[in-house]
Amino acid sequence: MNAMATPDRPSLRERKKLKTRAAIRKAAYRLVAAQGYDATTIEQIAAAAEVSPSTVVRYFPVKEDILLSDDQDALLVDRLRARPADEEPLDSLRTVILDAVSAALAEDPAETLLRARFLVEVPAVRARFTETTAETGRLLSGAVAERTGRDPDDLEVRVFTAAVLGALREATVHWAEHGRGDELVTLLDRTVDTLKGGLTLRSPSHRPGRARP
């Protein structure tokens, strides 16, 4: 093992990689915010980040990923596996995802708000967000399967994980579209409550026991 690395501290090489990724992302955010997504080129991002265009492509093969990737998937899987064994899978997913979102908001709220702006303004970014959410769901399916004693390719596991991640994606887009006035974590929490309630949806005027016309 590299002497510079510990279970809690990445190696020097890994830290350099993370620093490079962060520099590329921040450069892209500045440029896209100032001049628009379509007008921003890989070459411009590379120059602003002081790296080569090939380095940008090596770290982010898809341009949209520069604005979306937060390097959290592996951490989400680890945290999901670490949840109590007797916890309901939906509650486990709620905890690890809401904790990750809360941390991102606390660490760099400006970047989170910019990402929301790009989701609304750039169709390519929104389309890629849908793809990456599905990819995250497939990764989390493995941990969900382990916790429930199922095969990762079981239909129920795939549907469950895709439904949860898809619903949380939609809540995130809703938050971005509506001026980001509500707390994102609160909206995500409400989303899980909706799933947990069995997807029952009634009119706002409905009250239990009220006679239907």
Rank of each mutant, 00 (worst) to 15 (best):
M1W: 01
M4Q: 14
S11L: 06
R15I: 11
R15F: 07
K17D: 15
K17G: 14
K19L: 13
A23N: 10
I24V: 05
I24M: 02
K26M: 07
K26Q: 09
A28N: 00
A28Y: 02
R30L: 11
G36L: 13
A39T: 12
T40D: 04
T40M: 05
T40H: 01
I45C: 07
I45W: 08
I45M: 08
A47I: 11
A49W: 06
E50G: 01
V51M: 03
S54T: 06
T55I: 08
V56Y: 06
R58N: 04
Y59K: 03
F60A: 06
V62F: 11
V62L: 10
V62N: 04
E64L: 01
D65Y: 01
D70A: 03
D71P: 06
D71H: 10
A74Y: 08
A74M: 05
L75E: 07
L75D: 09
V77P: 00
D78K: 05
R79V: 00
R79D: 00
L80T: 02
R81D: 04
P89W: 04
L90H: 12
L90Y: 05
L90A: 09
D91N: 11
D91A: 14
D91H: 12
L93F: 06
T95E: 06
T95D: 14
L98W: 04
D99C: 00
D99Y: 03
V101L: 11
A104F: 08
A104Q: 13
A104T: 15
L105H: 02
D108M: 09
P109K: 04
P109I: 02
P109D: 00
A110C: 03
L113W: 01
L114C: 04
L114S: 12
A116C: 13
F118M: 13
V120G: 15
E121H: 01
R126D: 01
R126M: 04
F129S: 14
T133H: 04
T133Y: 08
E135C: 02
E135N: 08
G137L: 01
S141T: 09
G142P: 00
G142A: 15
V144T: 14
V144E: 07
E146L: 15
T148R: 13
T148F: 10
D151P: 00
D153F: 12
V157D: 09
R158C: 07
V159E: 04
A163W: 04
V173K: 10
W175D: 07
A176N: 08
D182H: 13
E183K: 12
E183W: 00
L184G: 06
V185G: 09
D189V: 05
D193G: 07
L199P: 00
T200K: 11
L201F: 00
R202A: 14
P208N: 12
P208Q: 14
P208A: 13
G209R: 08
R210M: 15
R210W: 04
P213E: 07
